[in-house]
Amino acid sequence: MAMDRQPVLEDDRVLLRPLAEADREALYAIASDLMVWEQHPIHDRWRREVFDAFFDDGLSSGGALAVIRKGDGEREDRIVGSTRYDAYDEEEGGSVEIGWTYLERAQWGKGINPAMKRLMLAHAFASVARVDFRVGDTNWRSRYALEAIGAERGPRYELERYQGKRVVHLVYELTREAFEQGPLTGD
Rank of each mutant, 00 (worst) to 15 (best):
E10R: 09
A26E: 10
I98K: 00
Y102F: 15
G186E: 15
E10L: 11
Y88S: 05
E25H: 10
E152I: 15
S95L: 12
V171H: 06
R166M: 07
R118S: 10
D23T: 05
A178D: 08
D187P: 06
M120Y: 01
D23Y: 11
S61Y: 01
E76Q: 10
I112A: 11
R47S: 11
R141Y: 12
E160L: 11
V168S: 05
V171G: 10
A122H: 05
F179M: 08
F179I: 08
R75H: 11
S32F: 05
I30M: 08
K70G: 03
Q6N: 13
G109P: 06
V80Y: 00
R141S: 15
D56F: 03
Q163R: 14
E104L: 02
I30P: 07
I98L: 15
Q107E: 15
H169Q: 11
G182Q: 04
T101A: 03
Y28T: 01
A53W: 07
A148P: 06
R45K: 14
A29C: 08
T138F: 15
A106H: 13
F51W: 10
A151L: 06
P155G: 14
D52C: 10
G182C: 09
D86V: 01
E10G: 10
Y102R: 02
A178V: 08
G99Y: 01
L15P: 00
D77Y: 00
F54I: 00
G99F: 07
P114F: 02
M120K: 01
R47Q: 10
F125N: 11
A122M: 10
